[in-house]
């Protein structure tokens, strides 16, 4: 079927309108549909709309179950409220809503573990552990591509850092 308006491109948007019981069908191509103000399927929508959609999908229990709405112990925000706004009320919401949020984070984010920058106040040992984690990943990569010299160097570096971490744990400075 061709688009009713331009009569050039195939119609891909099919709309049925009922006005005072009278039925009208409209068949348009993407471009012509986009130009019509009475069709709102192309209304721009924001990341929050998308997020709310995902939240509904991921947590059928709270939608169907009705009564049992969880609340954050610190700020009092309800999970249902968060679903509407797409934003949490305080840092502790993440621990109170963690069960509900985990599957969603997997879906909207690349991973569930932060590997980037660390605030300096997190202390010496925390940074050291993060550094060791990072080197372990590099070591695996080096072994995979059979870069054994590099792997040996990384292994030594990891050992040194682990020693340092042990000393620091025993010595009690740091976190």
């Amino acid at each position: 079927m061709l688009c009713q308006q331009c009569k050039e491109k195939p119609a891909t948007v099919h709309l049925t309108k009922y006005i005072n019981g009278k039925k009208t069908e409209i068949h348009l191509c993407q471009e012509c549909a986009r130009q019509r103000s009475d069709i709102s399927v192309f209304a721009p929508f924001t990341i929050n709309d998308l997020l709310s959609g995902l939240l509904d999908m991921a947590t059928p229990s709270t939608v169907m179950g009705g009564g049992e709405d969880i609340k954050c112990h610190t700020c009092g925000m309800a999970y249902s409220q968060f679903k509407k706004m797409g934003r949490v009320g305080c840092e502790n919401c993440y621990s109170d809503f963690s069960r509900e949020l985990e599957p969603i984070l997997k879906r909207i984010q690349g991973g569930t573990k932060h590997t980037g920058k660390v605030p300096s106040r997190m202390g010496f040992n925390y940074r050291l552990r993060r550094e060791i984690d990072k080197l372990r990943i590099e070591l695996q990569k080096a072994v995979k591509i059979e870069a054994f010299e590099e792997a040996a160097r990384l292994r030594d570096e990891i050992r040194n850092l682990e020693k340092e971490l042990k000393r620091s744990d025993e010595g009690g400075h740091g976190v």
């Binding site: 990341i47 949490v88 840092e91 909207i108 984010q109 932060h114 925390y126």
Partner: peptide
């Protein structure tokens, strides 16, 4: 800041 979630943000789309 959270050890696994990184920098805590109001919207989960900005975490990490």
């Amino acid at each position: 800041y959270h050890e696994t979630l990184g920098y805590i943000t109001s919207c989960p789309t900005n975490l990490g």
